[in-house]
């Protein structure tokens, strides 16, 4: 579906390595170009260089939380077109609102269903 040179780029940000393992597998299987970050600072550095189409972002992380990462991403001109997908265990309505207002477009709750996750990413790439 995606050729390697034009492959869509996804940045996974999560402090739980085991979750990153699963996400990485699922996305690579769909031929996405994947980069991984384990905390907020790392994520921002990578994002600036990698210019991902999508950032899959955890919220509760050591250092900088996901909302803050999203806010900062939104201030980066180069990442104007980048979509942010929150993937977090924080599932209350208030958390969702905080996520949307910090600049995220999608909000998925852990534990997630593999197919739902993959479909969401695919749809974002297909329809924006």
């Amino acid at each position: 579906m995606h050729t390697s040179d034009s492959a869509a780029k996804v940045l996974i940000v999560d402090d739980e390595p085991n979750i990153v393992v699963a996400l990485e597998f699922l996305l690579q299987r769909e031929a996405y170009q994947v980069q991984k970050a384990y905390n907020g600072v790392q994520a921002l550095e990578l994002a600036a260089a990698f210019l991902p189409d999508i950032i899959v972002l955890d919220v509760m992380m050591p250092g900088m939380d996901g909302f803050e990462v999203a806010r900062r991403v939104r201030q980066m001109e180069a990442l104007e077109m980048t979509k942010i997908v929150f993937l977090t265990a924080k599932g209350t309505q208030r958390d969702k609102e905080a996520g949307y207002s910090s600049g995220g477009e999608y909000y998925l709750i852990k534990p997630f269903d593999n197919e739902v996750f993959v479909n969401t990413i695919n749809e974002i790439m297909a329809y924006g």
Binding site: I19, V21, A22, L26, A89, P111
Partner: peptide, 18 residues
């Protein structure tokens, strides 16, 4: 506790399905 439980459950669920 919920978060602590959800995190391992998330990995378990996803990887098991894979």
């Amino acid at each position: 506790v919920t978060h602590e439980l959800r995190t391992p459950v998330t990995s378990i669920r996803s990887l098991t399905k894979i």
